[in-house]
């Protein structure tokens, strides 16, 4: 009998692979719309990973705010400007020869330290941590984090006004 693979493990591996492939696609695609769509793929798989980590409210917000609003805005602007594919860049030897290897080294060091310093992290099981529903998140948001919440709302207001002022066409 074939042992049934653990769904937590299988789900993580599938989603992580999908997220990494989409991430590669974000930085390698020539056209901005393709990059944006790949980024939506990353966000979708992250939303499911949030669900597995017990953050259901956050998963929904990730889809509504990130994939449904911010990325739609990106796609809208890309389509509005319709600037075509990126022109092939002049070879940037500095970026390729120094940047990418040092980035890989950084990644290796980080992973090494994560595994070394946190060897006994708890294993993720779907449904083991259920505090991420709307009620607990809302309660904490409106008690302990009330001030940051209000400050953020002010920030959003400023951003709205700023965006309107910037994007408004000058009336000649």
């Amino acid at each position: 009998m074939i042992p049934m693979p653990n769904l937590d493990v299988l789900g993580f591996l599938v989603l992580a692979t999908f997220a990494v492939l989409c991430g590669l696609s974000v930085i390698l695609q020539k056209h901005a719309v393709a990059s944006a769509l790949s980024l939506v793929g990353v966000m979708g798989s992250l939303a499911v990973l949030y669900l597995m980590l017990g953050a259901e409210f956050l998963a929904a917000v990730q889809m509504i705010v990130y994939a449904g609003a911010i990325m739609v805005l990106f796609v809208f602007v890309i389509m509005l400007l319709n600037s075509g594919s990126e022109r092939p860049a002049k070879a940037r030897y500095f970026a390729y020869l120094v940047g990418i290897p040092s980035l890989l080294a950084f990644l290796g060091v980080i992973s090494f330290f994560i595994l070394k310093e946190l060897p006994n992290t708890s294993s993720v099981q779907f449904g083991a941590f259920t505090q991420g529903g709307p009620a607990p998140v809302g309660r904490l948001l409106f008690t302990q984090y009330l001030l940051p919440f209000e400050v953020t709302s002010l920030l959003v207001l400023i951003a709205i006004i700023g965006a309107m002022v910037l994007a408004k066409k000058e009336i000649d």
């Binding site: 993580f12 997220a19 990494v20 980590l53 946190l118 060897p119 294993s123 993720v124 099981q125």
Partner: peptide, 15 residues
């Protein structure tokens, strides 16, 4: 048998 949280952290580092 299970995914430790550190894997999630490594995925985060990769992204």
């Amino acid at each position: 048998n299970a995914v430790p949280v550190s894997w999630y952290l490594i995925l985060s580092a990769i992204l």
